[in-house]
């Protein structure tokens, strides 16, 4: 996994709640057997019109968000299906962090397994970021995972929470399977003590 330490980037707004993973990556693109190449399909039904042209009304298609690497949403971002393809699509598109008032559990987990940082901020700060992203062209924030802060050039200094294990894995870009396999003795012991239920 690629590490996440600090990142400064342009913020794109997605001014809606309950952005579900069906929207982030529609089902017709879940048939690939690779982890890569999903960016072109990100928000497909919103980004593209029926004839395949860009939908000018969709936020991400605005020229000022063209090089955005941070997305700011609203409430319950990423609800619905467990498809990790949603995170792969965001990542492949170039998004390094998503800021929202709240996230759905599975999506939040999936983000942090792919070096994409989900950041929960309170509604006031989310609103502030929306406002500034709309007021200023190429509005940027700087995210510091070690310090757990989001700051901008206009006085925003917001702190966010993240559990220490997740943070450690993201900062170090750690292979969590390898970490778990360090405890292989404990897994073996558990299996010995608890027996088997499933007989073949």
């Amino acid at each position: 996994m690629k590490p996440f330490t600090t990142h400064t980037g342009i913020v794109a707004t997605l001014d809606r709640s309950n952005v579900d993973t069906d929207q982030i990556i529609p089902k017709q693109f879940l048939k690939r057997i690779e982890r890569t190449g999903f960016g072109q399909y990100l928000f497909f039904d919103w980004r593209f019109l029926e004839d395949g042209s860009l939908n000018p009304d969709f936020e991400l298609n605005q020229p000022r968000f063209e090089n955005a690497s941070i997305l700011v949403g609203r409430k319950n971002f990423g609800n619905g299906s467990s498809r990790e393809h949603a995170v792969w699509a965001l990542d492949d598109y170039g998004i390094r962090a998503v800021i929202a008032e709240s996230f759905a559990d599975i999506f939040y987990n999936n983000c942090s397994k792919n070096g994409l940082l989900p950041i929960v901020l309170n509604a006031d700060h989310v609103q502030l970021i929306h406002d500034r992203a709309n007021q200023h062209d190429a509005y940027e924030v700087t995210i510091d995972l070690n310090e757990q802060t989001v700051v901008d050039d206009y006085g925003l200094a917001s702190a966010f929470e993240i559990d220490s294990f997740r943070k450690q894995c993201l900062v170090g870009g750690l292979d969590q399977i390898a970490l778990t396999l360090n405890h292989i003795g404990k897994i073996e012991q558990f299996e010995k003590e608890n027996g088997d239920w499933l007989e073949r």
Binding site: N109, N110, I177, I187
Partner: peptide
């Protein structure tokens, strides 16, 4: 429900 990274984790570690 879990994502694919966790699917791989369970496959490799059963945890």
């Amino acid at each position: 429900g879990i994502g694919t990274s966790e699917v791989e984790h369970v496959m490799a570690t059963q945890t």
